[in-house]
């Protein structure tokens, strides 16, 4: 369909969640915004192939997801400062406890296989149905369900069963330990 004003507004309205999805996937704020930008350019260039009345966010998420995956293959050997860059994208600095817990969660999320991570984010954070998530990822609904379940199990094991030693004290934790223990 042509790029009408209302379609443009709808695309604009999807930008915040596209960014959240991109950052959740890549763990890197700068790269995420590049992904979003390329997604928007692709979407606008291919707007004729968008079916009016179909799910616009799902369409945009599909583009972003596929871009991320082809990009990921190219870049997988690059070393990235995932946590540091992500932290910079936050508007407000969380309190230390929350920040640490957040970093811990972020690190655990990064340990998930990509298939599981994206399924969990789409269903658990973006709020897509299993059906929409399956369409976005190009797989069966049952596959999405099992990926989400495996992602949750693994996060649970990483965060709540194995305990702190699984992550080991990082520098922040060490500083806190040094401060309160000595």
């Amino acid at each position: 369909m042509p790029l009408t004003d209302s379609l443009r507004d709808d695309i604009l309205a999807s930008v915040p969640s596209l960014r959240a999805f991109a950052i959740s996937l890549s763990g890197n704020g700068d790269r995420a915004d590049d992904l979003v930008q390329e997604t928007l350019l692709r979407a606008l260039a291919n707007i004729d192939s968008f079916q009016p009345g179909s799910n616009l966010p799902a369409w945009l998420f599909t583009i972003l997801r596929n871009l991320f995956r082809s990009d990921y293959r190219k870049r997988r050997r690059e070393v990235e400062d995932a946590e540091g860059s992500y932290a910079k994208t936050l508007k407000t600095q969380p309190a230390q406890n929350a920040h640490l817990e957040f970093e811990e969660f972020r690190a655990a999320l990064d340990k998930l296989p990509q298939d599981q991570r994206e399924a969990l984010i789409l269903v658990g954070a973006s709020g897509f149905s299993y059906e929409d998530a399956a369409a976005i990822c190009g797989c069966a609904v049952g596959t999405i369900k099992s990926r989400v379940n495996r992602a949750r199990s693994k996060l649970s094991a990483l965060l709540y069963v194995d305990g702190a030693e699984d992550f080991g004290p990082d520098e922040t934790v060490r500083a806190v330990i040094g401060g309160s223990g000595g």
């Binding site: 443009r8 604009l12 960014r19 959740s24 972020r106 984010i121 954070a125």
Partner: peptide, 26 residues
């Protein structure tokens, strides 16, 4: 708890709204 953390992380970015560069681009 995991669901809550996941959404907190995600919504934190959503709340940042639309950066100017994207509004301008569109």
């Amino acid at each position: 708890r995991i669901g809550h953390q996941l959404r907190a992380m995600y919504d934190d970015v959503v709340r940042q709204g639309v950066p100017d560069r994207f509004a301008e681009l569109i």
